[in-house]
Design a protein around this nucleic acid. Structure first.
Lengths: 230, 230
DNA sequence: TAGATTGTTAATCGATTAACAATC
DNA sequence: TAGATTGTTAATCGATTAACAATC
């Protein structure tokens, strides 16, 4: 359990640390400096992030990879299996059903829902698509606590309410709309056009066509320069 | 052009402001307070965000919706059309090709690439899929400056290098791996399993199965309580 | 003018970075 | 022990919030 309030950015980095050391030998001892290089941050940041949760390192040596994997997995809760409900099996939803990255983190889409009669009853990726109306009962009976929303904007709030009725405590929302949730439920949003708009901003107004196109200056920032690779 | 250094979070919020006022009457005058409520932030935050780029409001009144749309679109660069190259037309790539949210922001996938011979030459969503080997030449000749990577991890860096060779200045990466880019190129990453891992953390270790499952405490935070809706 | 809300300055809050004593 | 790196404290940096003079 954390000693102090943990920044959300720390949680995201923990996930990246885990991803980065997955392939390494369990017995290897990795200094914060090396882990930092792998993920593109500083050694101080790595130590600070880990120290929220305990003392995992060996002073003078570094962090044992096996121990690190174990501890981070435990902290994030990905050492156990998470059952997930997916709502909306359109193009994006179907892609999420097939997404191979989830399994590795103990994430399993166990129930899928849609309101399209031509889809209901079909089985995709081993998961049977059910009527959205059944969300509350299916989730309650299966104890599913996490939901993913991949519906159109128009259905997102309604579907959210059903997920919460079914006992969901965490929601990942892909619909580009603000959804409201009661206290005690955690929401994360992924909005693809916000991502691309942000890129658009950093590129300056150099898009094609359109009218007056002032260059907004060169604010491009770089994650890491190619030089660092050498 | 911005007066000071603009936080990345401000850019993301601008995009949300724009999304929120899209349906409103152009002549309506919206106080920062009301816009803040729409998007779930504070009035001070709204004014601060906008003030980086000029004085768009009318003291004593608020912000004219039409003016706001115009200015934010211009700031973000979504008043012109952005041509985008998509690399990797698997499940996720195909979903992105079909994604309806892009068009609204002036984002057009104009070229798609894959290395799968059975896909090359086919047309999906009106876009012909071409060989990844052709990325540099196609992008140069068409002047495409933005790329989306939806390939497996194993291909992500190679494909990045080709995009950059073709003159791309902004990349949205869905592959769950760190990719390296030269200075002057802007990268954003969307990692779906990081999103779900973060949810997992906030839910505490209440996933099913697995061994020792300590509850990490109740750190759940809420975007907005349901009460606010009333 | 009186009332309201902007744009901005100053204060606060929170996260990152630097530095170093403690530790293997 | 000498050398190296952790864990943490203090300093810095940056973003958010509060407050209010300027403005319509």
């Amino acid at each position: 359990m954390p000693r102090f309030r943990v920044p959300e950015a720390t949680i995201e980095r923990l996930s990246i640390y885990l991803r980065s050391i997955r392939g390494l030998n369990e017995t290897r001892i990795l200094p914060s400096q090396e882990l930092a290089e792998l993920v593109g941050t500083s050694d101080a940041q790595v130590r600070r992030d880990l120290s929220y949760f305990g003392e995992f390192g060996v002073p003078g040596q570094g962090y044992r990879v096996g121990k690190l994997k174990e501890e981070i997995s435990r902290i994030l809760g990905v050492d156990s299996i998470w059952w997930i409900a997916l709502v909306g099996v359109g193009n994006l939803g179907a892609a999420l059903l097939a997404y191979p990255g989830f399994k590795r983190q103990g994430l399993r889409i166990k129930a899928a829902f849609d309101n399209d009669l031509s889809k209901i009853g079909k089985i995709w990726q081993g998961v049977r698509i059910q009527d959205v109306e059944k969300i509350p009962e299916v989730l309650s009976s299966q104890g599913i606590k996490m939901g993913v929303i991949a519906t159109p904007v128009s259905a997102a709030q309604e579907v959210t309410d059903k997920l919460i009725e079914g006992g969901v405590k965490g929601i990942l929302n892909f619909a580009p709309v603000r959804i409201l949730i009661p206290e005690g439920v955690k929401l994360r949003n992924v909005d693809l056009s916000i991502e691309l708009s942000a890129l658009s901003y950093f590129l300056g107004n150099t898009g094609v066509s359109g009218e007056a196109k002032e260059i907004l200056g060169t604010r491009q920032q770089t994650e890491q320069t190619k030089k660092d690779r050498e």
